Amino acid sequence: MSHVTSNQPDGTPTWIDLRVPDLDRASAFYGALFRWEYSSGAAGGPDAAGGSGLGTVCLLRGKPVAAIAQAPAITGSGSDSGSGWTMYFATADCDGAARRVEEAGGSLIEPPTDIGDLGRAAVAEDAVGARFGLWEGRTHLGCEVVNEPDSLVRNDLVTPDPGPARDFYTAVFGYTLDRNETLPDLDFTFLRRGDGHEIGGIFGSPAARSSAWATTFEVADTDAVVHRAIAAGGTAGAPEDTPYGRMATVTDPFGVEFSVIRRL
Rank of each mutant, 00 (worst) to 15 (best):
Thr139Gln: 13
Asp24Tyr: 09
Ala236Phe: 02
Thr249Gln: 12
Asp10Leu: 11
Glu218Ile: 08
Pro164Thr: 04
Thr139Ile: 10
Ala92Arg: 01
Ala248Cys: 08
Phe188Lys: 05
Leu54Glu: 15
Pro164Leu: 05
Gly200Leu: 03
Thr215Met: 11
Asp93Lys: 00
Thr189Ile: 07
Ala26Leu: 01
Gln70Phe: 12
Asp252Phe: 01
Asp17Leu: 05
Arg19Lys: 10
Tyr88Lys: 02
Asp95Pro: 05
Thr249Cys: 09
Ile68Arg: 03
Gly84Thr: 03
Trp85Lys: 02
Leu18Tyr: 05
Trp36Cys: 07
Ser6Pro: 07
Pro160Glu: 06
Leu264Thr: 11
Ala229Tyr: 00
Arg192Thr: 06
Ser205Leu: 14
Ile109Glu: 08
Asp156Ser: 10
Leu33Phe: 00
Asp161Cys: 12
Asp178Arg: 13
Thr113Pro: 05
Gly137Met: 06
Gly196Arg: 09
Val123His: 03
Thr113Met: 15
Gly245Leu: 04
Phe132Gly: 02
Thr189Lys: 04
Asp195Glu: 10
Gly194Ala: 15
Gly234Thr: 02
Ala248Thr: 06
Leu157Met: 13
Thr139Arg: 15
Ala98Gln: 10
Ser77Trp: 14
Thr249Asp: 08
Met247Tyr: 07
Gly174Asn: 14
Gly62Ala: 08
Asp195Pro: 09
Ala231Asp: 12
Lys63Cys: 07
Pro64Ile: 08
Ala212Glu: 01
Asn7Gln: 13
Gly196Ser: 12
Leu191Ser: 06
Asp117Ile: 12
Ser2Ile: 04
Ser81Lys: 09
Leu108Ala: 11
Ala42Val: 15
Val153Cys: 15
Gly233Arg: 10
Gly142Arg: 05
Ala214Tyr: 02
Leu108Gln: 07
Arg19Asn: 05
Gly76Ala: 08
Phe168Thr: 01
Gly116Ile: 08
Glu103Lys: 09
